[in-house]
Amino acid sequence: MSIIIDTLRESALHIDSLLKDTSTSYMQSINVSGDTQLEIDVKVDTFLSEKLLNIPCVKAICSEEQEEMLYSAHTNAPYIIAYDPLDGSSLIDSNLSIGTIFGIYNEELNAKNLIASGYIIYGPRLEMIIAQEQALHYRYNGSIWRNLGALQLNTKGKINAPGGTQKHWENKHKAMIESLFAQGYRLRYSGGMVPDLHQILVKGGGLFSYPATSDAPNGKLRKLFEVFPFAFVYEKAGGFAINGTQRILDLEVAHLHESTPCFFGSQSEINLVREVYE
């Protein structure tokens, strides 16, 4: 396991430099999720796939940018890595923070076999969260990665990060979001999963929501690459992750790119979501 984490740390430095030097123009290609790819999406995905497939304990990888699982030469290795190479890449031209999300699965791709996860955030500072027994927060200072300690959510937060196009929300979801603003919650939403969920973790609590909508009845965010890894992080930080009624990490997976509605937050906010959706 440690070799995987070390490889991801090294990869973060290279990707950070790619973001500064590589074209961010759109290509003609569309990934399996229907998103038009940027040149940087493809370049980072290619780099990560080569690095991860060379790790002796990794038998396979799957990426949001690729339709099928890729297998390594290490057929008896135990781990499968699912990752989103550049979450929020459409924010690059606005110079906002984006990230890499990863989940490490033991033997099989399902939530019960997720044994570690985390993300890298490319912002004013290069940071990384690694969740195993705890959600540990690291920052690169130009020469080494410093451990800033474990992230821990409070019982109640102050941030409201609502995803999805508002005109496609259900009335009950709209009423719930408005009720949080009426309580004094602050709107903090960039359109990037990594920076928005990271802010809630660092600030101590709140709610990130991406519900089922009329144009995306199964939600938009992918289970294996985005939702499961963040659910694992949030639970290790004392928070919660549900699809409205069920714990995220109790959900099954039918195919690699399956999506789900999702709500991440501290106890008070997730209790509210359960009341609304149950």
Rank of each mutant, 00 (worst) to 15 (best):
I177W: 01
Q166E: 15
Y185L: 01
K158A: 06
I98E: 05
K167E: 14
I92C: 01
I115N: 10
G192I: 02
Q183R: 12
K167F: 15
E108K: 14
H168C: 12
L86R: 10
V58F: 13
G103V: 08
G103H: 05
N147T: 08
E108D: 13
V202C: 08
N160T: 04
Y140E: 04
L86E: 10
G184K: 02
L96K: 11
K167T: 14
Y71W: 04
A116E: 13
W169S: 10
G157A: 11
Y185C: 03
M176R: 07
T75G: 07
Q166R: 14
H137R: 07
M128F: 02
M69S: 13
Y83Q: 08
I144A: 11
L70H: 09
V58Q: 00
A77D: 06
L197R: 09
K59E: 00
Q134M: 09
Y138T: 03
V194T: 05
K59C: 10
G157I: 03
D196G: 04
L151I: 13
L114K: 01
Q183L: 11
Y71K: 10
L201M: 04
E65I: 06
I115T: 15
L70I: 11
I80P: 11
A182C: 02
L86F: 14
Y105T: 11
I98G: 03
Q134I: 09
H74A: 12
G118P: 02
S94V: 04
N76P: 01
Q199I: 06
Y185K: 06
R125T: 13
L109F: 12
I61P: 10
F181A: 00
K172M: 07
L151W: 09
P85R: 11
L201E: 08
S143W: 07
I120F: 08
N147I: 08
D84K: 04
D93E: 06
L153E: 03
G88P: 00
S89Q: 01
S63I: 05
E108M: 07
H168D: 15
D93Y: 00
E107R: 14
I130G: 05
G99K: 12
T100M: 06
A77H: 09
Q66H: 11
Y119I: 08
E170R: 15
N147P: 10
P78G: 03
A77T: 12
S97G: 12
T100Q: 14
N147R: 08
M69K: 15
Q166V: 14
Y140T: 11
I104D: 01
L114H: 00
L151A: 09
L70F: 00
E178Y: 07
S72Y: 05
L136C: 14
D84R: 04
P124Q: 15
S94I: 01
N141Y: 06
E178C: 01
N95Q: 13
